[in-house]
Amino acid sequence: MFGFLSRKNHFPVDGRTILITGASQGMGKEVARILAQKGANVVVVARDVKKLESAINYISSAAANPEKQRFHSISADVTKAEENTRIIEEVTAWNHGAPPDIVWAIAGASIPGLFIDTSLETLHSQMDINYWSAAYLSQAVLKLWLRPEPKPASHPTPAPSRRLIMTSSVIAFVGLAGYAPYGPCKAAMRSLADALRSELHLYRGAQKHNPSLAPPVDVKVHCVCPGTILSPGLDEENKHKHPVTKLLEKSDPKQTAEEVAEASIKALEGGHFLIVTQWLAALMRAASLQGSERNSWLTDTLLSFVASVVWLFVGPDLDKQVLKYGQEHGVSVS
């Protein structure tokens, strides 16, 4: 309950096998590097084979124990359900028949733009890479993790601790003009994380109902919501971004991929569920918690009050900026 007082590491990774999608560049690559520094065995997934080769060299060079740690890359299209099943199967085989201990879905891309100007093809592709890729991966690994097995009569083993981490965005908390193709995908992912966190209690209860099954379920879900990340992805995103969107976020704090990775992992070590990586995102998160699990009941309650007051001024100001831009520049409808 008093998460802000806890010093326990809720995210130990030394000697564990971690699967990360979208890890050939940006946040994903930095997350993999830091986890390698902490002693993890890391499997990275992306489409581009050359980028994967470069990423593996970068990540493995940071290994805490190069003689013991192992690294692997998989080229795959994570927007396809069957590819996600293949990824889990390949990682399990590579990991001597054991499923990965931690799965972190980071693959994603933003193609911003005004909603009515965005093609249906782009709307579908945005949902594919930003929501369905994580949903497919989550279902594939949870089916494996939650599969009941008979408990051995002797030599009981402790429950394996497993973590499923999704990477959403602060846009899941507050919708902005120009992010209609992207924001709903990330909001859907945040909602999926909420639903899975609730569903996992069902499996914990079922194990108590039938103790002959093993191992006891110890799976936790986390949702990371970064803000603006200085990365190649941002450079590409800015090519499509409407000027009014740039106006609305011009004063937003920006972080390097390394800063986002460090903040995310630190929050995971603190046991947080809905994770943000900078102060503005913390206010946005607090204002939109609703039924989501609190990281700290005291801090989140105070921040929720502060955010509700701040939004009395920030919300109308954002609306005025959009209105003023339309008055000064107009807008075309094709």
Results as ranks from 00 to 15, higher is better:
148 P>C: 15
94 W>P: 02
115 F>C: 08
182 Y>N: 03
184 P>F: 04
143 K>P: 01
155 H>V: 13
109 A>V: 11
161 S>P: 03
149 E>K: 15
83 E>V: 07
100 P>R: 02
73 S>R: 08
115 F>I: 13
183 G>F: 00
130 N>H: 06
142 L>G: 03
158 P>I: 13
150 P>A: 11
145 W>K: 07
95 N>T: 08
125 S>V: 04
110 S>N: 12
107 A>H: 00
191 S>Y: 08
176 L>R: 14
192 L>K: 07
139 Q>M: 07
143 K>E: 15
173 F>G: 00
97 G>R: 06
135 A>M: 13
71 F>S: 09
85 T>F: 08
99 P>Q: 04
152 P>K: 09
76 A>K: 00
103 V>E: 00
114 L>P: 05
127 M>D: 10
143 K>Q: 13
143 K>Y: 12
109 A>C: 10
138 S>L: 10
93 A>V: 14
148 P>N: 13
129 I>H: 01
72 H>V: 05
173 F>C: 04
157 T>G: 12
122 T>E: 08
78 V>A: 07
156 P>M: 14
167 T>D: 01
149 E>R: 15
148 P>G: 13
120 L>P: 02
130 N>I: 05
177 A>E: 12
130 N>R: 06
137 L>D: 02
192 L>M: 15
151 K>A: 12
160 P>H: 03
90 E>W: 05
106 I>F: 03
126 Q>M: 15
78 V>L: 08
178 G>E: 03
76 A>V: 03
144 L>I: 13
127 M>S: 11
115 F>Y: 12
78 V>S: 06
149 E>Q: 15
121 E>F: 06
168 S>Y: 01
92 T>N: 09
71 F>I: 05
168 S>D: 03
121 E>S: 12
105 A>D: 06
69 Q>D: 06
130 N>S: 10
184 P>M: 08
97 G>E: 09
98 A>Y: 09
119 S>H: 11
124 H>D: 14
127 M>H: 11
